[in-house]
């Protein structure tokens, strides 16, 4: 599985300007919402990389930056050895053929007036793939088979309202596959789907990934699906990666207090807990990205805070092979 990184992200930042008051304009002050504040990671060819964190931690913004739906404020994105941080329109189109996205809400991401066939044909027309209608239909059929909507003929004619949530997410995945991309960004692809079907969709996505040798960036807030689905996980907090490593390693040997809190908070189907209060080792709620705490940005919520944490910002350090943590508790 270990091979060349297909995607490299270096010190990527996305700062959104905050609207200023007249006084601030006159003083020349600027404030920013630091949604993504300097992250570095790489994803290997054929790997499923999970980006995990609470809402507001910048994981979706990172996904959008990689999709090039947003222009980064700073930093670099390198895809297959080429710098793609800033692209012109025609290059961008080429890039987007290679990197596709599955969105969170399958009820909103598919045009209700398109049949499944039209949904899948549109990207082919845009990217001028498939000369004739018959040829395009062949590609569509293959993509539908790939996501197990079988027989494809039956599903091609259906409108979205005739499909269940799980089937819609399959169509959304098929839409990315028709372009034969090398990487797919999946932003919470199963969070809107019923639990019974969730496993089925993840299973399908994993099978497709293995068969076609795809690379996924899986953005989620759910650690338990991340463990099952991904090879490596990066945990984000307020725009920074706080811990990164192999999926099993992160869950079984979490080091960062934030990761530990996330793990402790996950509900598990084990008996006899209905009368006990669950201890989650974390204080309060996530602060706003417009007002990031000094030093380690996790320190106001951390139970193990030291004086140093309020001043110095910790950097990612390797504590075990491939396991990196940004925390002052590492001696």
């Amino acid at each position: 599985m270990i091979s060349e990184p297909i995607l490299k992200v270096e010190n990527l930042k996305e700062w959104f300007p905050v609207r200023r008051t007249i006084a601030q304009i006159l003083k020349g002050e600027r404030t920013w919402i630091k949604a993504v504040d300097g992250i570095t990671f790489s994803i290997n060819q054929g790997e499923i990389f999970g980006l995990v964190g609470e809402s507001g931690c910048g994981k979706t913004t990172t996904g959008k930056l990689i999709m090039k739906l947003l222009e980064p404020s700073e930093g670099k994105i390198i895809f297959k050895g080429k710098d793609v941080t800033h692209l012109e329109a025609d290059k961008l189109k080429e890039y987007r053929r290679n990197v596709q996205m599955v969105f969170q809400d399958p009820y909103a991401s598919i045009n209700p007036r398109f049949r499944a066939q039209d949904v899948l044909e549109e990207p082919l027309i845009i990217h001028q793939m498939g000369e004739t209608r018959a040829e395009r239909e062949k590609i569509i059929r293959r993509a539908l088979e790939e996501v197990r909507l079988i027989p494809p003929e039956e599903f091609m004619e259906r409108f979205p309202h005739m499909l269940s949530g799980g089937q819609r997410q399959r169509v959304a995945t098929a839409r990315t596959l028709v372009l034969s991309p090398s990487m797919i960004v999946a932003d919470e692809p199963v969070s809107m789907i019923d639990l019974s079907t969730r496993a089925e969709i993840l299973h399908m996505m994993k099978t497709v990934q293995r068969e076609l040798g795809l690379t996924y960036l899986y953005v989620t807030h759910d650690l338990s699906t991340a463990r099952y689905f991904t090879d490596r996980i990066a945990v984000m907090y307020l725009g920074k990666i706080v811990e990164m490593g192999g999926a099993d390693e992160i869950i079984d040997n979490a080091f960062h207090p934030y990761t530990k809190a996330l793990i402790a908070a996950v509900c598990e189907p084990i008996p006899g807990k209905s009368n006990t209060i669950k201890e989650v080792p974390i204080k309060g709620e996530i602060p706003s990205a417009a007002n990031i705490p000094s030093g380690c940005r996790f320190h106001p919520r951390c139970l193990y805070v030291k004086p140093q944490c309020q001043e110095d910002e910790p950097i990612l350090k390797e504590i075990d092979l491939g396991h990196q943590v940004a925390c002052h508790l590492i001696s």
């Binding site: 019974s196 496993a199 089925e200 299973h203 463990r227 099952y228 099993d248 869950i251 996950v266």
Partner: peptide, 19 residues
């Protein structure tokens, strides 16, 4: 089936079952 489809954090499973 529903319980088997529920992912467990502290158990590594190769394949989740589904309905």
């Amino acid at each position: 089936k529903l319980l088997k489809a529920t992912p467990r954090l502290h158990e590594k499973v190769e394949e989740l079952s589904f309905i």
